[in-house]
């Protein structure tokens, strides 16, 4: 049974010292060829989970397998069959782009040529900088090189810890396009990110907060599970607007979203009533329209429920 999944995690818990519960009974699985996102803020437990799967850390309780191998017993097997990209850039800064790639191919007993097909799409972008030292690359380029190095031995499972943190929107988009293409080559990918908008690019996502999984589902289903009426509202004084909407009796939550504030309601009410309320508070330039919930609306709703 367990061998059918690329990753199987069963009631995994990990504690640091007395006070920090990094993971609390986490369970999920990742299918072969699936792009699975672990979405959550800093300190949610994403790195701990990935490090356990990469066999760099032992869990206190629970079980986990990667490609059917148990993380505790078969760690050697796992290490030679996964690609792992840690959160901190960990290639050799003083080796060139090509030297880094050759180094990683060699320690896995392979060659660049043997698996070039797998990295070609990504590597063509790096080729002009082949002789540049890795430490001198821009943030986006570093991440692309790190991805190449994690792929060069043709892993069956790819573990990527926040590969797009601090990377600009263009490089982020390119990086995700690369992941989509890798998926087609039947590599299972577990990728963590603090960027909620990246959730929609995954087959399934797990929302994680304070070591607990809040929800696991297809991104579209997580969003459609947000069942409260939602409005986008703006006026000429956004700072006051946020506070006034929070004090609005029928309101459930009010959070700034770009140039609007998203107001969710306990039950549907006429926009005119809200308009009158805001006009009474001397707001001008009032605009109210229905809003489509995003993954961030859903995440914040789950987060606040957790608190209560």
């Amino acid at each position: 049974m367990p061998t059918s999944q690329a990753i199987q995690v069963d009631n995994l818990s990990k504690r640091y010292g007395k006070d920090v519960q990094a993971l609390a009974q986490v369970s999920f699985e990742v299918g072969r060829g699936e792009l699975f996102g672990l979405i959550g803020p800093d300190g949610a437990g994403k790195t701990t989970l990935i490090r356990i799967l990469a066999t760099l850390l032992l869990a206190d309780e629970g079980q986990a397998t990667v490609n059917g191998w148990e993380v505790r017993k078969n760690y050697r097997k796992i290490r030679s069959h996964i690609g792992y990209m840690p959160g901190r850039f960990s290639l050799y800064q003083d080796l060139s782009v090509e030297e880094n790639l050759r180094f990683f191919a060699t320690i896995f007993g392979s060659t660049i040529e043997e698996n070039y097909e797998l990295i070609r799409d990504i590597y063509v972008q790096l080729e002009p900088f082949r002789e540049r030292k890795a430490g001198k690359l821009s943030g986006g380029m570093k991440q692309k090189l790190a991805l190449c190095c994690a792929l060069i031995h043709k892993p069956v499972v790819l573990l990527l810890d926040e590969p797009t943190t601090g990377v600009d929107p263009v490089s982020r988009q390119e990086f995700w396009e690369m992941l989509q293409r890798l998926k087609e080559k039947d590599i299972a990918i577990l990728v963590s990110t603090p960027y909620m908008d990246e959730a929609s690019l995954c087959d399934r996502v797990a929302l994680i907060q304070k070591g607990r999984l809040l929800s696991i589902d297809q991104p579209g289903k997580i969003v459609s599970a947000f069942d409260k009426p939602l409005l986008a509202i703006r006026t000429n004084d956004m700072y006051r607007l946020i506070h006034d909407l929070r004090a609005f009796e029928p309101g459930h939550s009010a959070f700034p979203f770009g140039e609007y504030v998203h107001l969710s309601l306990r039950q549907p009410i006429w926009p005119e009533a809200i308009h009158a309320y805001l006009a009474g508070k001397e707001h001008t330039g009032i605009e109210i329209k229905p809003a489509q919930a995003t993954i961030e609306d859903a995440f914040m709703e789950l987060m606040t429920r957790e608190v209560m």
């Binding site: 959550g40 949610a44 943190t165 603090p194 907060q209 959070f255 700034p256 914040m300 987060m303």
Partner: peptide, 21 residues
């Protein structure tokens, strides 16, 4: 705001709005 959760990120922006106001 890199890496912080969506609620904290918004609280941070409210602090910015306040300072600007």
């Amino acid at each position: 705001t890199g890496g912080v959760d969506p609620i904290t990120r918004r609280q941070f922006w409210e602090m910015i709005y306040k300072a600007a106001s």
